[in-house]
Simulated assay, not measured.
Amino acid sequence: MPHVSADDGVKLYYEEAGSGLPIVFVHEFAGDHRSWEPQLRHFARRYRCIAYSARGFPPSDVPEDPTMYGQDRARDDIRAVMDALGLDTAHVVGLSMGGFATLHFGFSYPERARSLVIAGCGYGAEPAKREQFAREADAAAQRFLDLGMEEAGAAYAVGPTRVQFQNADPRGWAEFRDQLREHSALGAANTMRGVQKVRPSLYELVDKMRTITAPTLVLTGDEDWPCLEPALLMKREIPTSALAVIPNAGHTINLETPAEFNALVADFLHAVDAGRWPERDPRAVSGDILGSR
């Protein structure tokens, strides 16, 4: 099976399909490289598509040491995949945990990002919810260790922003749930505590967001409650960004609403590749309501 080495030697499993300009897909906490199958089948017709499993998610390595996990490591693992595959630049598409890593990649390595798609990004970001999120993340990690993924993973799959997927596509949701139950309990716990629980709030990253130069598409479902306000924040602060909201959709939008997700991303990528993606006109943020002065 193909693997690349991260900067610290952790082996990351990847799959690829297609040829052309590269797209790197970065999965969410409840997913892995398989989560991007609807996107690989669609975009591989015109792009070189790469999907990898994050550290802690087999067939990638599952480090036992919790210090081997972190937001900066997740960001740098995107770069490591690109370096190993000889990609100077790439479109980077991330969902949730992968969306956070994509955002950090965008302001840390601007010369490597052809564009950014930041989807379902915002869990635990709102300042008033930080302590609650940390408690829930710690409790979820302990459940993975105590109960195992068969039981704890099945419960995680029916969270308040997952039931939309279950209701819309029971068969697809069942596949998602079953793949989640195959994850490593140790990898899930270490990722939850080492990445999710302690990553910086988006509201602490406003100055860095303002430096992003890559064309950026922010995506969210309208029932992905923890991500709605953060999506608006990113739209306001990233000068090259657009925001799209998918109606009646939860968190797992690339699987729950693949047609809508793929269409939005495809239109975005086509505009970027044609050199037609705009940077915001400063007059759009003057502070006036009517602009009649």
Results as ranks from 00 to 15, higher is better:
Gly122Cys: 12
Pro160Ser: 01
Gly159Phe: 07
Phe133Arg: 00
Gly94His: 08
Thr102Val: 15
Glu151Pro: 08
Arg181Thr: 06
Arg112Leu: 00
Gly124Pro: 09
Pro127Phe: 00
Tyr123Asp: 15
Phe107Pro: 05
Arg135Phe: 01
Ala189Arg: 04
Gln196Trp: 05
Asp169Lys: 05
Val158Met: 06
Gly148Gln: 03
Asn190Pro: 15
Gly187Lys: 02
Asp178Gly: 07
Glu182Lys: 13
Leu116Tyr: 02
Glu175Gln: 09
Tyr156Ile: 11
Arg114Ser: 04
Val117Thr: 11
Gln166Gly: 07
Gly159Tyr: 04
Leu103Trp: 12
Gln142Pro: 00
Phe107Lys: 10
Ala139Phe: 02
Gly98Ile: 11
Phe100His: 13
Ala119Asp: 02
Ala152Asp: 07
Ala155Asp: 09
Ala125Glu: 12
Ala188Thr: 08
Pro170Ile: 14
Ala155Arg: 09
Ala189Val: 06
Asp169Ser: 11
Gly98Lys: 14
Leu186Asn: 06
Gln179Met: 10
Ser96Gln: 07
Ala113Pro: 00
Phe105Val: 14
Ala140Asn: 06
Gly98Arg: 14
Leu116Met: 13
Leu180Trp: 01
Pro110His: 02
Ala174Thr: 13
Gln196Gly: 13
Gln179Gly: 11
Gly120Cys: 10
Ala139Trp: 03
Tyr156Ser: 09
Ser115Ala: 10
Gly120His: 09
Gly153Arg: 03
Gln179Arg: 08
Gln179Cys: 11
Phe144Arg: 01
Met192Phe: 05
Gln132Asp: 12
Ala125Thr: 08
Phe107Gln: 14
Gly187Gln: 03
Pro160Ile: 01
Glu151Leu: 11
Ser184Cys: 05
Leu180Asp: 01
Gly153His: 08
His183Trp: 07
Leu95Ile: 12
Asn167Glu: 14
Arg143Tyr: 03
Ala134Tyr: 02
Ala185Gln: 06
Tyr156Pro: 01
Gly98Phe: 13
His183Val: 13
Asp146Thr: 08
Val158Ala: 08
Pro160Glu: 02
Gly172Leu: 13
Ala168Val: 04
Ser184Glu: 05
Glu151Asn: 05
Asn190Ser: 07
Gln142Gly: 01
Glu150Cys: 04
Leu116Thr: 03
Gly99Thr: 15
Gly124Asp: 00
Ala125Asn: 12
Ala119Val: 01
Asn167Thr: 11
Ala189Ser: 06
His104Pro: 05
Glu111Cys: 03
Gly99Ser: 14
Gly120Met: 11
Ala119Arg: 01
Asn167Arg: 12
Met192Lys: 09
Ala128Gln: 15
Pro110Met: 03
Cys121Phe: 10
Thr102Glu: 08
Phe105Ile: 14
Glu151Cys: 09
Arg177Cys: 09
Asn167Val: 08
Asp146Ser: 07
Phe105Gly: 07
Gln166Cys: 07
Ala140Thr: 13
Thr102Ile: 14
Trp173Glu: 00
Gly94Leu: 13
Ala155Pro: 05
His183Pro: 15
Pro170Phe: 15
Ala128Lys: 15
Ala141His: 02
Asn190Trp: 04
Gly159His: 05
Gln166Val: 12
Asp178Cys: 04
Ser96Lys: 03
Ala134Lys: 11
Val93Asn: 14
Ala101Arg: 03
Gly120Tyr: 09
Ser115Met: 13
Val117Asp: 01
Thr161Trp: 10
Gln164Lys: 04
